[in-house]
Simulated scan of single mutants.
Amino acid sequence: MSIIKVSDQSFKSEVEAQGTGTVVVDFWAPWCAPCRMIAPVLEELDQEVGDKLKIAKLNVDDNPESASRYGVMSIPTLIVFKNGTPVDKIIGFQSKDALKNVIARHLS
């Protein structure tokens, strides 16, 4: 599965809908250096976990509504959703192994 881009308009159908499985949303902005550092890590994770996980990116500058609704105060923030419900939050740059450990807890 490839990483998708979501917006305030598509957030509900792509992330919050029942039956969407496990979705990791990367709240980021183009000017954020740690966000640019985590992007290749997410690409690698996407290749490794395949269809078990959907990864979505939401630009907080262009989509402030979703970021505000989930209390995103600093970026990068990754929120793990399970069938539309937020179940975990990771703030700041993390190694691939650290991300894998958090995500693995929520894969079914």
Results as ranks from 00 to 15, higher is better:
1 M>D: 10
2 S>R: 10
5 K>R: 12
6 V>H: 08
11 F>D: 04
12 K>V: 10
13 S>R: 15
14 E>K: 15
15 V>K: 01
15 V>Y: 06
15 V>A: 06
18 Q>S: 14
18 Q>I: 12
21 G>I: 08
22 T>W: 02
23 V>I: 11
23 V>A: 12
23 V>W: 06
23 V>Q: 08
24 V>I: 13
24 V>G: 11
24 V>T: 11
25 V>F: 13
25 V>W: 09
27 F>S: 00
27 F>N: 01
28 W>Q: 05
29 A>Q: 04
29 A>S: 03
31 W>Y: 03
32 C>E: 14
33 A>V: 14
34 P>S: 10
34 P>N: 04
36 R>P: 05
36 R>Q: 14
36 R>L: 13
37 M>A: 14
38 I>S: 07
38 I>E: 08
39 A>T: 08
40 P>Q: 02
40 P>Y: 05
40 P>M: 04
42 L>C: 10
42 L>Y: 11
45 L>C: 10
46 D>H: 03
47 Q>N: 12
47 Q>F: 01
48 E>S: 15
49 V>T: 09
50 G>P: 06
50 G>T: 06
51 D>P: 07
52 K>R: 12
53 L>A: 09
54 K>M: 07
56 A>S: 12
57 K>W: 01
59 N>Q: 01
59 N>F: 00
59 N>A: 01
59 N>G: 02
60 V>K: 05
60 V>L: 05
61 D>Y: 00
63 N>C: 10
63 N>P: 08
64 P>E: 01
65 E>R: 14
65 E>K: 15
65 E>T: 13
66 S>M: 14
66 S>P: 08
67 A>I: 03
67 A>Y: 14
68 S>E: 07
71 G>N: 12
72 V>D: 04
72 V>M: 09
73 M>K: 15
75 I>K: 01
75 I>Y: 14
77 T>V: 09
78 L>Q: 15
78 L>S: 10
78 L>K: 00
78 L>A: 09
80 V>G: 08
81 F>K: 07
82 K>G: 09
83 N>S: 14
83 N>E: 15
84 G>Q: 10
84 G>S: 08
85 T>G: 04
86 P>A: 13
88 D>L: 06
90 I>Q: 12
91 I>R: 03
91 I>P: 04
91 I>Q: 14
92 G>P: 12
93 F>S: 01
94 Q>L: 08
94 Q>E: 11
95 S>F: 14
96 K>A: 06
96 K>R: 02
98 A>G: 05
99 L>S: 07
99 L>Y: 04
100 K>F: 07
100 K>V: 06
101 N>Y: 00
103 I>R: 00
104 A>H: 02
104 A>R: 00
104 A>T: 13
105 R>Y: 03
105 R>K: 10
105 R>I: 08
107 L>P: 12
108 S>M: 12
